[in-house]
């Protein structure tokens, strides 16, 4: 049988192509152009070759920021994913408490990011903040504006508070889609709660958890606003992640060339890691 091919459908894709070209492809091309040149302003550029890439790749500053970024990303993933799943498991699936829980969970996601940063900054101040004062009253020597360890603790706590909800909501969506028949069958077989989790709930949540891990992974690599308001990358450079360092180079020092080179390396790292994550998780799903 001959199928009719109607290529008119391609026309409907054109608006998206135009949109992506204007907001992604053209700016990205410009960044590539900047990354091989030097400028002193006035739109005058001088050819610099791959100097900036070499400089960024061999600089200790970039290596440190990248290591800090990796540490941050894997720490928050290790906390937020299990915690989110655990909270989703304890949430009611029927009854009047469902909307209450859902709204409570969605609240942190609705707060503007700079407000989250400001809130946590004030909350954690050692002299007037509730968290800071309480910790000091309990005998801890806590000061996130001076001690790197405390700054990291506050940063990770803030991210967990802000974003665990996303994992909870996604995991919960996966959980409620499981038909009752599965639980009834498990009950007849005398399955223990852990077996139910391992063989029914976890496999059914796999797809949404894949999305949750990917989203959290990419977003944590791009964290800027909350971090910039909370610590600004300090004390010293101790919480300077890639995005903060990039803005310092691009806007603070106005080194467009090195900043462009760093942006491209940053972009390639996110792209590669996301691809690896996605491929691994999809492969596990197929098996």
């Amino acid at each position: 049988m001959n199928k009719t091919h109607d290529n008119k459908a391609w026309l409907f894709v054109l608006p998206v192509v135009a949109l992506v070209a204007f907001n992604a492809v053209i700016p990205l091309m410009t960044v590539v152009n900047y990354s091989v040149q030097e400028t002193f302003g006035d739109n005058v550029f001088f050819w610099a070759g791959v100097t900036w890439f070499e400089q960024v790749l061999q600089s200790e500053r970039f290596h440190d920021a990248l290591l800090r970024q990796m540490f941050f990303t894997f720490s928050i993933l290790a906390i937020e994913v299990p915690l989110g799943v655990a909270i989703a498991l304890t949430m009611p699936r029927k009854g009047p408490w469902v909307p209450v829980c859902l709204v409570l969970m969605a609240l942190p996601l609705l707060i503007p990011w700079n407000v989250v940063g400001a809130m946590w900054n004030i909350f954690a101040l050692p002299d007037i903040g509730l968290l800071g004062r309480s910790l000091n009253a309990l005998g801890f020597d806590y000061n996130f504006t001076r001690q790197p360890g405390d700054a990291w603790f506050t940063l990770i706590l803030m991210d967990v508070w802000h974003w665990t909800s996303l994992v909870v909501l996604l995991a919960y969506a996966g959980l409620v889609s499981i038909p009752d028949a599965y639980y009834q069958a498990a009950k007849i077989d005398g399955a223990r709660p852990f077996a139910i989790f391992r063989y029914i709930q976890l496999p059914k949540m796999k797809r949404v958890l894949t999305i949750a891990v990917l989203l959290r992974f990419m977003d944590s690599f791009m964290i800027y606003t909350e971090l910039s308001v909370l610590t600004g990358g300090g004390p010293g450079n101790s919480t300077t992640l890639l995005s903060i360092d990039l803005v310092k180079i691009a806007l603070g020092q106005f080194d467009l060339g090195p900043a462009a080179a760093m942006s491209l390396i940053y972009f390639l790292i996110i792209l590669a890691l996301s691809w690896v994550f996605y491929t691994l998780m999809m492969r596990n799903e197929q098996q």
Binding site: T39, N43, F45
Partner: peptide
Amino acid sequence: SWMAWTWPT
């Protein structure tokens, strides 16, 4: 010109 094109890129 704002895109600062070069031949290699």
